[in-house]
């Protein structure tokens, strides 16, 4: 699983041109993975979030603007090992904006 962590685009004041360039990079990455047949599933996440925490199940309403690091989405990809997954992650478009990809192996039972 590739988990994307970074600041939100909305907070960055990107211009239409810059946003479009991001869109194009995401699309080409998707296309490449689809061609290689490695992308199993993935989702982008909305920026509004609630946190439920503690024994009292306290709910806090956090807006993305308050968070330095936000999970923006995830992909589940097919790779032989960490190296393979890291290879796939090379094309993540937001490294230049300070984005991070966390690579985790999904646990399989039986």
């Amino acid at each position: 699983m590739l988990i994307f962590i970074g600041v939100s685009y909305a907070e960055m004041n990107l211009s239409p041109e810059e946003i479009q360039n991001r869109a194009a990079s995401w699309m080409s990455w998707n296309e490449k993975m689809a061609k290689q047949g490695v992308l199993k599933e993935g989702n982008a996440l909305q920026e509004d979030l609630r946190r439920v925490k503690g024994p009292d199940r306290t709910v806090t309403d956090r807006t993305s603007a308050e968070l330095k690091e936000l999970i923006g989405g995830y992909y589940i990809v097919k790779a032989a090992d960490f190296e393979g997954a890291i290879e796939i992650a090379q094309d993540y478009p937001d490294f230049d904006l300070g984005g991070t990809v966390e690579v985790r192996e999904v646990m399989h039972y039986n």
């Binding site: 909305a10 239409p16 946003i19 869109a23 995401w26 699309m27 993935g42 982008a44």
Partner: peptide, 17 residues
């Protein structure tokens, strides 16, 4: 609103335009 729309388009257009 238009800025937000463009950002959302990145996600919504992942598969195809």
């Amino acid at each position: 609103a238009i800025q937000d729309t463009f950002i959302n388009a990145i996600r919504a257009w992942q598969g195809n335009v």
